[in-house]
Write a protein that binds this DNA or RNA. Structure first.
Lengths: 348, 348
DNA sequence: GCGGCTCGCTAATACGTATTAGCATCGACG
DNA sequence: CGTCGATGCTAATACGTATTAGCGAGCCGC
């Protein structure tokens, strides 16, 4: 009654069926090429033995011998699950999982990546990237040097979010922030706003650059359109600045900053959007409690995850060399925070 | 400038360093046994070449040759991310990820498992279990036959949630529902409740059995303690039943059912806990909006995930043969829904 | 000067699969 | 009866690593 210590291999199957190991492999892979033929009776015999023993090919050996593994690697620059990033990563993972399930792939989360300077690194002493056929990269900012290395090594990958070239074009599935922000700016202009302010975070991430680009491009006809940087903790200072400038609409990159700004305005007896319009440029990335329905846009995160899977598959098998960079449209959200500026008040 | 099509192997390193492939492997694995010695200069030379080339061992080949892979498999009986199960799986995954990160393991989600009869199956035609060193099983109900098979094959695994024996003891990390429910029953008895009703779901899952067991064991001194089954949609019928029986406290297995029951009571002008006490027996498993702070207990899901990792490690390396079954205590939550029964009213 | 020791390394093999060249058989055809 | 083509299979090898037995060289002691 001792369970078999050694697992069943093709050799065992072969012995039982009275054929060679190669034959078992051929039957298993359903090879019916012109130059490989197996008699139906032999095939059936082998299949019967396989069924009886419950044999399943060792995926590791299979991977070593052949090219592919049907494993999609997922690399998150921050831990995937902890609640801080929860709302940020979850929709992506949902889409990725759906895709993986559909095409019969497993998902490998590279949790073994060591943390250096507060963020995970793809390449390290003992990186295990090659366990997967390819890899989906998630993270607000992705290290350019690591993208270079991926390109150089020819390792298939795709970034979620648009990325600048890094020693070659970077395959990505991003959201079209520039277009979304531009549409919001146009909407504000149509409603009579003439002094607009973009309240941003940093300049490094591509997602920030794209939003700013959209803002600048669309606000050409505005009387004044400028950009300031803000930290979420200094909402009062930001508000002062907006009022001093006479801006009637704030385009706020970070959702939490928008919430803080609205609170600050309310504390001063100002109304939104009566005295100041506030537009958000993306969904919350961390849980922020608020009752306000902000005007802004929705990032199709789930769909981005799904399509990242598709693009990765294309990169892996070398097909679709063209459409390896996709920008998905964002859906505008008509909330309550973009109004009409009061023409009676000269805000300059 | 064409990137090297073939990846760097130990043979390449060996050639460059003027040693044999075996030596490279020995250096790489830092073997310093009595029977394996490498001169310091040789070691340095090899290490230098490795550093220069950025070589990293192929984890697949490594796995094939050696025993282990440092991959923890995660099998969820339902999709891990979609929002229905989101609140159920997420805390577990959080704990598992934290453990994996700590011990330097990667996480493999078996999304390739085909769905049969509405649930995923571990074993199938081409199961890829052996990619991982072992596997953590998540799901409200786990198929006993599959546990049998895992035991028979000697594949290391651990279930999250207590499981009955299945062809041998099942390693698990569960929550001690029996103790938690018992403590709540004792609390109710101390507050004067004498007629208690357990409102359950089914009898199949071990988690249900454990709760019932705790209820029965602790309610020995009650005048009447009984168990009824309920469906969340028929809260009114359940309420009728409770009132007809004269029960003053309902112990409700499913959180959503408790919410529905409270609503039904309120619609009839009854107060909770004035006219009826309601105790919940676990956190919500699906998002249920409610403002009520129910009295009940908290399941330490995150800690369960973490400890599942620990137990799995023990199972894999054969150590800790003893403590492969753990029950974690639940934390009582003192809410507003367990009161004192009105002694003036004879409820019989 | 020879057995026995340690030191430092290598050759050989195993892990379990996929692939390819090619062997043996047989019928048909000239 | 020899040749050719088709058929059905197998032997051999590759994939990249880990492991182990063992070899040559130098050194020591008697």
């Amino acid at each position: 009654m001792t369970p078999p210590l050694r697992r069943v291999t093709q050799r065992d199957i072969a012995r039982m069926a009275g054929v060679s190991q190669a034959t078992v492999s051929l039957v298993l892979n359903n090879r019916t090429d012109a130059d490989v033929r197996i008699a139906p009776e032999t095939r059936d015999r082998v299949l019967r033995v396989i069924a009886e023993t419950g044999y399943a090919a060792d995926p590791v050996a299979r991977r070593l011998a052949a090219r592919f593994n049907r494993i999609i690697g997922v690399f998150t620059y921050e831990p995937a699950f902890p609640s801080g990033s929860r709302d940020f990563f979850h929709p992506f993972l949902l889409g990725i999982e759906e895709y993986a399930e559909r095409v019969g792939c497993d998902l490998l989360l590279f949790t073994s990546a060591p943390v250096v300077d507060g963020r995970r690194r793809i390449f390290h002493q003992d990186n295990r990237l090659r366990l997967a056929d390819g890899c989906i990269l998630l993270g607000r900012e992705i290290d350019g040097a690591e993208l270079h290395r991926l390109n150089r090594d020819g390792f298939p990958y795709v970034a979620v979010g648009r990325r600048d070239d890094a020693g070659g074009a970077v395959p990505y599935v991003g959201a079209d922030y520039a277009a979304a922000v531009a549409r919001l700016v146009e909407l504000a202009l149509r409603r009579g706003h003439r002094r607009l302010t973009y309240v941003g975070m940093g300049m490094t991430a591509e997602s920030s650059q794209d939003r700013r680009r959209g803002f600048v491009a669309a606000s050409a006809t505005a009387e004044s359109a400028r950009q300031v940087s803000a930290v979420a903790t200094a909402a009062d200072a930001t508000l002062d600045d907006l009022l001093a400038d006479g801006s009637t609409a704030a385009f706020v990159e970070d959702f939490a900053t928008a919430v803080a700004l609205e609170s600050a305005a309310r504390r001063r007896g100002l109304t939104v959007p009566g005295d100041l319009s506030i537009v958000t440029l993306g969904d919350p990335t961390v849980p922020v409690p608020t009752d306000i329905a902000f005007t802004g846009f929705h990032i199709p995160r789930e769909e981005m995850g799904r399509q990242a899977g598709e693009v990765l598959t294309g990169v892996i098998d070398g097909s679709a060399a063209g459409s390896q960079q996709r920008l998905l449209p964002c859906e505008l959200v008509e909330g309550d925070t973009l109004g009409t500026p009061d023409p009676a008040v000269d805000r300059r």
